[in-house]
Design a protein around this nucleic acid. Structure first.
Lengths: 340, 340
DNA sequence: AATATTTACGTAAACGATTTCGTAATTAAC
DNA sequence: GTTAATTACGAAATCGTTTACGTAAATATT
């Protein structure tokens, strides 16, 4: 199959495999003329070193793993984009694993990865990830970098954004726009990012003296239909909110659909902010006010840190906790004006 | 690093590595009691076989490569989702490579992959891919499955959708909705999918006796700003089209923005159809008529075929050319009615 | 001219698993 | 009781590289 090997080159040139290997590695102990001959034949035969032979010997696979909940989500796909860019640039290969928010998948994947297939991992945990033994176990052997959805309890590098501040700023923005009954649409009680955003939300509510009873947190699920129903009931209820802060991008669709169906005007009757990286935010009607996360940059940062850890051969770079701020982009879904 | 190996287990149990390996493989030549002891210790120590040792010996890496232009595109991210699902289910690992539409990247990636790192590849070529020697070269050693953007000239499995028919149906729909000057927004002259869609477009134009002069094909680029300008000029020109058929999802944003800025009403003044898998199509204003491709299914199909090729140890499965139809979903961007 | 150093290469072990073959001990067969 | 078959394991080769070490020849040193 894989055709040509160092052994084959050695035979053709009447040299030893050691010499070939050294010549290809541009070792000083090989004469210039021999190097030339070797390089020439290697190029001619299109020799490519067997990745696994080298990995086996050197204990380095030049491969990293990326574990994310979904890839059909603007944030994660942009982050993956950033990761892959850095990896490719540094000659690393990127294995992608989708957990689909299932901790069992996360567990199985990390376990399988312990066999030396990768040199390290970049991950964003699932909504179910409360027990973290499997991550600890993995991290005992290999470096891990968290991004976005982190595990505070594990002492390793983390790339996050300013979730607390954004939750706060978004809520303040809603309040200043006139909202008094604001609902936070959540997807988890345990997720680091959601908890931070919720804290910011709560702080803003408290600081501005809003009635905490009116400002609820509602938990959505993975099921779009269920979420639609949930939001519909919310908007049909007696204490309909006049402000919605959605912590995940995919809820945008359901919010807009419900309001359309119930004939509730955004932003006149309810103002909406979503944590979203969707490019379509600017062509929705009304255009959507978003907290846009630096997904691409976060991915790049995570990969950069991981590769640095690999280079320095260290498991822990505690100090490597980077926070890259998100941006509140105010559009028409929270202003009084309706787009032309 | 990687900690525990078969050798280590052998030492602890005072057995040979051969016995351990066979016991773990549940070989019949190992006694039940020994198997038990081995399994127990393996579990206790959390033994995971070194992936590369096995790969090196067996020439099988249990890894496939996915080459796609972008991942921040609904079609490709959904397809990747499908691929990963099948791969994980069959115990395969998925390496992801983004070509960013650069043939040079495609070339370099395929070349690096020849070193046995993967058992096969699934790919969608770049817009620049006209020369295909690098793919031929790779395919001489390893199986390749194309999906969506295929290379007709290479005799291997291909998963596509009914692009010709969709180009035709979309155009007919525009014509029947009253359009007479329809523009096809393209991104390439060579891409298989675009050429098919264009042919369908041309056929519909001809069949319905539209003036071919009025029905142009315009080439867009990778640059959003440039595309915006291009579309703006188009819509400001004398022979402004009354119908637009966009062959890629990302052009949606620019089309809507331009129309918004120029105060051109969709669908009254121009009707719009996009090849798009964006979930936001239903909340745009007006909601967007789309050709929605079975991205997830195409990914699954591609992975299924590739894994079957690997199982049967064959490079070519010519007959494995599957066409999974797309759906024309008619919404308000092509009807006379404006959404409430 | 005798020794020391450098140059340019080869030998062989190692990485971790699998597998072919061999073999001692036990059991079965006659 | 002798031979045949089975059971349960070990020794060693193998996959394709890399690298520590060895060594002959060429060159340098004194």
């Amino acid at each position: 199959m894989s055709a040509i090997t160092i052994k084959l080159l050695a035979e053709r040139l009447q040299l030893s495999t050691a010499t070939i290997s050294k010549a290809l590695g541009d070792s000083h102990e090989i004469s210039a003329s021999t190097k030339e001959r070797v390089l020439a034949l290697a190029k001619e035969l299109n020799y490519v070193p067997n990745a696994y032979a080298g990995s086996l010997r050197g204990n380095k696979s030049k491969t990293i793993a990326v574990l994310i909940p979904e890839v059909s989500d603007s944030f994660f796909s942009q982050a993956l984009n950033g990761i892959e860019e850095v990896a490719l640039e540094k000659g690393y290969h990127t294995l992608i694993y989708l957990t689909h928010e299932k901790i069992e998948r996360e567990r199985a994947i990390l376990h399988a990865l312990a066999g030396g297939r990768v040199d390290g991992a970049i991950m964003s945990v699932t909504v179910e990830t409360e027990a973290i033994d499997h991550i600890r176990e993995f991290n005992r052997q290999l470096p891990v970098v968290f991004f976005d959805r982190v595990c505070e309890e594990i002492d390793t590098a983390k790339i996050t954004t300013n979730d607390f501040e954004c939750g706060y700023k978004a809520t303040v923005h809603l309040i200043e726009a006139g909202c008094r009954k604001i609902v936070l649409l959540s997807i988890s009680n345990s997720l680091s990012i959601i908890s931070e955003r919720s804290k910011g939300f709560a702080k803003a509510i408290a600081e501005h003296g809003l009635n905490a009873e009116d400002c609820k947190i509602i938990n959505c699920s993975e099921d779009a239909v269920h979420n639609y129903q949930l939001i519909k009931e919310l908007m049909q209820g007696n204490d309909r909110p006049d402000g919605i802060l959605a912590t995940v991008e995919k809820l945008t669709t359901e919010i807009y659909l419900v309001c359309q169906q119930l004939n509730i005007n955004i932003p006149l009757q309810v103002k909406v902010i979503c944590f979203s990286n969707q490019s379509s935010a600017i062509i929705l009607n009304p255009t959507l006010t978003t907290i846009t996360q630096p997904a691409f940059e976060m991915g790049k940062a995570a990969a950069t840190v991981l590769l640095r850890m690999l280079k320095n051969n260290t498991l822990i770079l505690k100090e490597e906790c980077t926070v890259i701020p998100s941006t509140l982009i105010i559009r028409n879904s929270t202003t009084g004006y309706i787009s032309s």
